[in-house]
Design a binder for these strands. Sequence first.
DNA 1: CGCCCGACTCGAATCGATTCGACCGTACAA
DNA 2: TTGTACGGTCGAATCGATTCGAGTCGGGCG
Lengths: 358, 358
Amino acid sequence: MKTDSSAPTAANPRVTLADVAALAGVSASTASLAFSGSGPVSDATKERVLAAASELGYAGPDPRARSLRRGRSGIVGVVLEERVRAAFLDPVKIQTLDGLTEGIAPLGAALLLLTDSGDPDAPVSLDTAPLDAVVLIGCSPKFHRQTERLQRRGIPIVAIEGAPGGGVPEITIDNREATRLGAEHLRELGHTDVATVTLPFEPTRVRGPLTPEIEAAATVDTSLERLRGARDVYPGLRAHVAGASSIEEGLEAARALLADAATRPTAIVAQSDLLAAGVIQAAEELGLSVPDDLSVVGFDGIRVDGLQHDLTTLVQPSVAKGRAAGDAIVQMLSGEDAAGTAFTSTLHVGDTTAPPRR
Amino acid sequence: MKTDSSAPTAANPRVTLADVAALAGVSASTASLAFSGSGPVSDATKERVLAAASELGYAGPDPRARSLRRGRSGIVGVVLEERVRAAFLDPVKIQTLDGLTEGIAPLGAALLLLTDSGDPDAPVSLDTAPLDAVVLIGCSPKFHRQTERLQRRGIPIVAIEGAPGGGVPEITIDNREATRLGAEHLRELGHTDVATVTLPFEPTRVRGPLTPEIEAAATVDTSLERLRGARDVYPGLRAHVAGASSIEEGLEAARALLADAATRPTAIVAQSDLLAAGVIQAAEELGLSVPDDLSVVGFDGIRVDGLQHDLTTLVQPSVAKGRAAGDAIVQMLSGEDAAGTAFTSTLHVGDTTAPPRR
DNA sequence: CGCCCGACTCGAATCGATTCGACCGTACAA
DNA sequence: TTGTACGGTCGAATCGATTCGAGTCGGGCG
C-alpha cells in the first residue's frame, strides 16, 4: 500500500529512521545498520526495515544528521575569485575543474562552487558551509585569513595557481620556463622583433600597453611569470595587457600591436590560446598571413573551438592539475599530509610559427 | 596570548562551542547567542565569549551541527546531466548558472555542482548531500525517481529546460515559437530552400543526417521543439544533427549540408549560436559569402567570442532563466509554492541574413 | 517599601543518525 | 558436556549547536 507521498506537512511531519525502526519492530541502531549496509544484519530484518521504510515513504537517512555524526559531508569547496560567468569563460579552469571532479571521485564528493561575489558582507560560505576540504583556484593572498580558519578547523586546503601561504600545498606549472621555451623557439626561427599579449595583472583588469605602474601593482603571479619567461629571451619586448583571456581581447590587443606597419613585430607571444586566436584574427584582418608574416605562440594547449590553425603553444596539463589537487585532498583527508605538485608544460609546434619573412 | 593554531590533533581534539562557553564562564546557550547575534546578550558577555573563542582558536560554529539543528544547510544543488567539461562549454548554461547565483543570493547559499558522471553506481550525491533545494538544468525524465525522493523529503525542486514531471515548477522558453519566428524571417526574405543544424537529440550525441529513428528516440525536448518550429514554416527541411553545441560541430554539419552545390540551401537555421558560427565558417571555407550566398540564423543571443558577424539570432533570456529559478526557490523555501515561468525569445536581425541571391 | 517588568542567563530538550560496547543465543570445537 | 566464538540485536552515548521556557537579578514605578 502506497502512503501519502507528498511533502511533509504539520500533520505528517517528517519520517525519521526511528519511525521506520518502530514500524519494523527493531531498534534504531539496527535500522541504521540495515541502511548503511555496514555491520551484520540478517536478511530478514533488513527486508523488514526496507519494507517499513517504503511504506512510510522514508527517503533515506537525513544527510544533515549523517554528516554531523560522521564528521564528513561529502562536499569539497572550490573557490574562484570571480563570478561564475567570468570564471567559466576560461577553458583551462573548466578542464581543471573536470580533473578535480575526477580526482575526488574516490571520495564520492561533489563540488561546492564558491565564487567571490565581490560583496564583502555577503554571508561567507567558506565559514558556514559544511565542507570536507577546499580547493583554491587562482586565488590571491587575500584569502589568507579565511584559509587560516579552515585549517584551524582541520579542513584540508589545496591551492591551484595561487599562493595563499600557510603551508598549503600548491599545484603549479612552470609558467616562466614554459614561456621561455616558446620564446626560444621563436629565436631559433630567427625572430628578433617580438611582442607579447599578456593576461590581466590584477582583478580590475585594466587593459592597454604594459606600464611599469601596472607591473608594480600586479597581483596575478601567472601573468607576471609568463612575462618574465618572455623577457628571459627578449628582454625589451613590447607588451600589451588584455582585459581577459578571450579571442575578443586578443584581437583588440593585437590590433594595437600591429597597427603601425613600421614597428610591427614579426612574432607575438600570447599568454593564452584564446588570446592567440584573437591575435591570428587580427593578423588576418590586416591581410597578414600566419605564420609567414606573423608567427604566433599561445599558451594552454586547449583546442580553441573554431580555430582553423594548429596553434604553436605551450601545452599545460590543465586536467592533470585538477586531478593532482583531488589526489592531494584525498590523501590529506585520509590523514597523510600531501605535498604540492609542480607540473611542466611542453612546447607543441604547430603551423603558426615560421621563420620571419626575409 | 596566541594558542596552538595548528590543525586539531589527538592532544588538541577540537574546540567546540561548549569549550568556549566554559572558558568564558557562561553557558553554551549564551555563547551560542553571542555568536549568532540573535537574542539579548550583554556587550560584556559577548566580548568575553569572543575573547575566549579567539584564545582557544575557535573557528565559529560547526556548519554540520548548525545545519542539523536549523534544518538548513545553505546549499542549493544544481544537476547537470553531463560532465563538467561538457556542461560548461555551453555559454547559455553558464549564463543561466550566473543568473541562478544571483537569484539565490538572498539565501546566502552556494551552489553544489552535481554532474552525471555516467557511472550508475557512484554514490548518488542527490541523496547524500545536505541540500536545501535543487535546480535541474536540462535534465531528462530519468531523474524522476530521484526527484520523487527529494520531494518526499520536502526539498524544493525547480527545472530549467527539462520536464521531470511531478508538479515541479519549470522555467522554459518558447523554443518552437521562437524558431518559427526565425524561419518566418527567412521566408519573408524569400528563402525557399532552407536547412537546419540541430542540437543532439539524446545524451549519446549521435551526429549525422537526421533520421526518423533518431527523432523517434529523442529525449531532448529543446532540440525537438526547435526542429518543430523550423518545420512549421519549412515542413520538409533538411536537418543535420550536430554532436554538441560548438563551432566545430557546426562547421562539420554545415560542410555536410553545403557539400553538394546543386542541392545547396540558401539559408541555414542553426539551433545555437555556436553552431551558427560554425556554419558561417563552413560557408567561408567554401567561398560562400554570408549573407549573400547563405543566410544564417542562430539561437541563444550570446556573443560568440571571435565571431566577426552580427549574427541574426533568437535572443533568449538565459540569465533571467537562472534568476527566475532562483526566485522560485527562494519562494518555495519560504513556504509559498511557486509556479514556473515561460520566457519568450526575441528575434535579433543582424547581418547574417539577407534575401537569397537572385 | 513592595511589586512588576524587562534584560540577561541558564538548563534541558532537540535535530536525526551513527557507533561502541554489551548482551543473548546458538552452533561448533575441544 | 563445557567453553568459545560469533552472528545478530539492542541501549545508550555522541556528534555540536540551537532554541524555548524558566529562572534570576536589578531597577523603576506606584
